[in-house]
Amino acid sequence: MRTDAPSVPAGGVASATPDRSGNPPRRRSPALRKAFPYLLLAPAMIYLLAITLYPGLFAIYQSLFVVKFLNWTWTGLGNYSQILQDREFWAALGNTALIGGISLTLQTAIALTLAYFAYRDPLIRGWRIIFLMPMLFMPSAVAFIWKLAFNDGRVISDLLMSVGLVDGNVDWLASVWLARMTLIVADVWQWTPFLFIIFVAALQGQDQEIEEAARLDGASWPEIFWNISLPMMRPVIVVAVTLRGIDITTMFTNVFVMTQGTPGGATETMSYFIYRQGFRMFNFGYASAASVLMLILTIIIAQTVVKRAFHSGKK
């Protein structure tokens, strides 16, 4: 047992007078000891709050004003009541639901199908990273590639022509559904791999003996997938699709680069609507109110989906 060794102040806090009393080093006061972990966390927390909570609160605050640059006029819920009567807002909401919904359905279906064919293949295990390529590109770069492919470079028109599906250049921005389709194609291309990788991992993580048992019970591979693997994947699917769904409601880059909401607002998503209100028309209060509404809507939908899925999944 040490008795006279000079004790080193714990925590590295410099103490001017070395402790010569022979007592063990002084403990911090209980209050400080309790607070210590939080103190350590504080810088990260402050940083996080500053970049997430603060803008959120600021948006809510701002949504209660009519803002013309530095000139803020209190309007209470004025912005909100105005938005709820704004046909462009409802159109944007509809477009987001439509484009996002179709895109999400397509990429989920494609990712599941691919995962079903791929997960038993040992090659896929080693080369999974390749499938992530589309996600690794910068979103704006991807958007420009697709803009080139569809509109400016006419690559896709040429391809379709060469197989005889169309006889002239297609003007993708001329038709409501063609324009929406270009956005859907771009999003599916970029994000299917994300779901695919998650689904493959989920399938590979399942107990192989269960599949073997099903095999001996006489089930074909599709039957195994449908009756056993898919239900077992359910929580993973729900989480992945919810994440993707939340992300899709903020679809902006592709719209900004490829269609700018044309034709006639048919491809204007919520994010683009908000952007247009805020940074083209400088209705900051109005744009903030739209953001807040969108946030509330997203939270409600995501909550319901996750709750439902996990609730009926148990029992």
């Binding site: 269960i210 048992a213 095999r215 001996l216 019970d217 009756n227 359910r234």
Partner: peptide
Amino acid sequence: IDARDRDVAMVFQGYALYPNM
């Protein structure tokens, strides 16, 4: 011949029950 077509029934050491059913 594939396991499915051998017409054997097996009790697995680890049971291998279908957890979702």
